[in-house]
């Protein structure tokens, strides 16, 4: 065999690496059998079977995505059915609408929901709590909420997978998944396994056919 990997073991999953906790997502994805890749450029985005938008500052991630010509390609790939998972800032980026955006702040969109930034409060109110997530077997996950958003309201197509104190904190719509908390900061990779399963179902690269 000449060139290219001899044996593709799992889908190639990008992590949007403009800013945020990229490394933790790369580690979690590798742990559940995906082939992780950093994505900072349109041509890198074009080469992935799925994408994670990490935790970070949503205003910063938006500005960098806009400045480096990633916003429209991201929207196009979401419209075309790319599986995407967003945690915290990533959840904000996947929301169709932000209740309290900074002036000019836009999202990629795709999930019919309105999110409220920093809804659980500032850093002093950041917390850990157990969260039951529908579709994640084996008991509650450790939810790490850091200046976290919550989902203010959802449209009919969005399915609420988890709530905390009455507020939706995990949502799925088709091939899009979003959590207000950070599974990547724990050693528990079940949410990433759920996401990689969504990619495989969607027909992302599997097996040894070498693509």
């Amino acid at each position: 065999m000449s060139g290219g990997p001899a044996h593709v073991t799992g889908p190639v999953v990008g992590v949007l690496a403009l800013q945020g906790d990229v490394r933790e997502h790369l580690t979690a994805l590798a742990a559940v059998g995906a082939v992780p890749r950093q994505v900072r450029r349109p041509e890198e985005l074009a080469a992935v079977d799925g994408l994670v938008i990490p935790g970070g500052e949503s205003t910063t991630i938006f500005k960098l995505a806009a400045a480096f010509g990633l916003l429209e390609p991201l929207r196009e790939r979401v419209r075309a059915g790319l599986p995407v998972y967003g945690s915290c800032a990533g959840m904000i980026m996947l929301a169709d609408k932000i209740l309290d955006p900074r002036s000019g702040q836009e999202t990629v969109g795709g999930i019919d929901m309105i999110v409220r930034r920093n809804a659980f409060g500032r850093q002093n109110e950041s917390f850990e709590a157990a969260v039951e997530v529908a579709g994640v077997p084996g008991g509650p996950v450790e939810g790490v909420f850091i200046r976290a958003p919550w989902v203010e309201s959802t449209g009919a197509a969005a399915e609420i997978l988890a709530e905390h104190e009455g507020h939706p904190v995990a949502v799925r719509q088709g091939r899009l998944l979003a959590t207000a908390f950070h599974p990547e900061l724990t050693g528990d990779h079940r949410v990433h396994r759920l996401f990689v399963g969504m990619i495989t179902e969607a027909g992302g690269a599997t097996g040894a056919d070498g693509a």
């Binding site: 800013q19 990229v22 950041s126 909420f145 905390h164 900061l185």
Partner: peptide, 28 residues
Amino acid sequence: STPPSTPQAPETGTARVKRGMAEQLKGG
């Protein structure tokens, strides 16, 4: 569907929450 309620009282100021906040600033 309504998901099950969370069983445990939330905890603030943990090492994971403090260090995790800095992880969110990386690359910035």
